[in-house]
């Protein structure tokens, strides 16, 4: 039953994704530093941070669900990763499609929320509330972007999507899907929790939001989850709009392109408050999304 090639692929991709994910987080901090004319930490700084957290000699827990939260989040992120067609490796993407992956990319939020809620700290409760409201706000434009995409290409299977884009050119080139790209990019900002929408872990306001009670190995878990999530989401973005990739280097470049767009936006804009974010999401991105959807029907 087990085809060993697939399992080896999966493990290889997982390790690759982990390292590249951390590198992306490093690039993020390095690029922001460079924009502020600072030298900024080495690119592999997130790896060091995670190791330090993992190496903590003491660990504290608020009960079973507090431990289960980060584990569940990392587990689902890994699952989501394995269902996206990375470069020429099909992995498991043959038996799950766009909607399943889109859902799997949002479920880690539940894992983090579960852990944060059971920590019983008011700051984490506020973080949970803001996290959920951001997700509710950005879900409509996110859905509209996906619908526009699917209606244009007519299929939900990611592998087929990539094949079609190889043939007929990337999604960006289609005018309607360009609008969908803009909407998806704004939503991508909120998915990653970067600057304009980093209301979830607003460091100054509610001290790291949901992660306030996380320390030691729980924080290490969350960092690895964020790395895998970052890799998965950039890969998802690349697959949807930049026509996937024939080899890993091609994919890496596309992911960098996406990441840099996000970094540049993040390093400029101040933070939205949560109801401003909701009102913003339900105004401009939704309107553009509706136009995109109506153009492709």
């Amino acid at each position: 039953m087990f085809d060993w090639r697939l399992i080896l692929d999966a493990i290889g991709i997982l390790i690759y994704a982990l390292i590249v994910g951390f590198i992306f987080m490093g690039i993020e901090r390095k690029a922001m530093a460079r924009i502020q004319r600072r030298i900024g930490p080495p690119i592999y700084q997130p790896i060091i941070d995670t190791l330090k957290l993992l190496g903590k000699k003491e660990s504290v827990s608020h009960g079973f669900v507090y431990n289960f939260g980060p584990v569940f989040a990392l587990g689902v992120s890994i699952t989501a990763l394995l269902f996206i067609p990375i470069a020429n490796f099909q992995l498991f993407s043959s038996n799950a499609d766009l909607i399943v992956v889109a859902y799997l990319l949002e479920v880690p939020m539940l894992g983090i929320m579960l852990g944060a809620m059971s920590s019983g700290n008011p700051y984490s409760a506020l973080g949970v509330q803001r996290g959920l409201l951001t997700m509710v706000a950005m879900q409509l434009p996110y859905g509209l972007a996906i619908i526009a995409l699917v209606q244009h290409w007519g299929t939900f299977k990611l592998s087929q999507l990539v094949a079609l884009q190889q043939l007929q050119g990337w999604s960006i080139t289609v005018p309607a899907l360009a609008l969908a790209f803009i909407v998806f990019d704004i939503v991508f900002q909120a998915l990653l929790g970067l600057e304009p929408f980093d209301i979830i872990t607003a460091p100054a306001e509610i001290s790291m939001g949901p992660m306030v009670e996380y320390g030691g190995k729980h924080a290490a878990l969350l960092f690895t989850q964020h790395a895998v999530q970052l890799f998965a989401e950039t890969a998802f973005f690349a697959v949807l709009f930049f026509g996937g990739a024939s080899n890993l280097l091609d994919l890496f470049l596309k992911q960098l392109l996406v990441l840099f767009i996000a970094i540049f936006v993040a390093s400029i804009y101040p933070r939205f408050t949560i109801d401003q974010a909701a009102k913003f999401f339900w105004k401009w991105p939704t309107i553009i999304g509706i136009i995109a959807v109506l153009l492709t029907v």
């Binding site: 980060p70 587990g75 890994i78 699952t79 498991f92």
Partner: peptide
């Protein structure tokens, strides 16, 4: 299945760290 595998991996990472005490 992949979810279970993912949870297992995460569980391994969790078990490796210092064992947590309840507060």
């Amino acid at each position: 299945l992949v979810l279970i595998v993912g949870l297992a991996i995460a569980g391994l990472v969790y078990i490796y760290g210092a064992n947590a005490r309840k507060i």
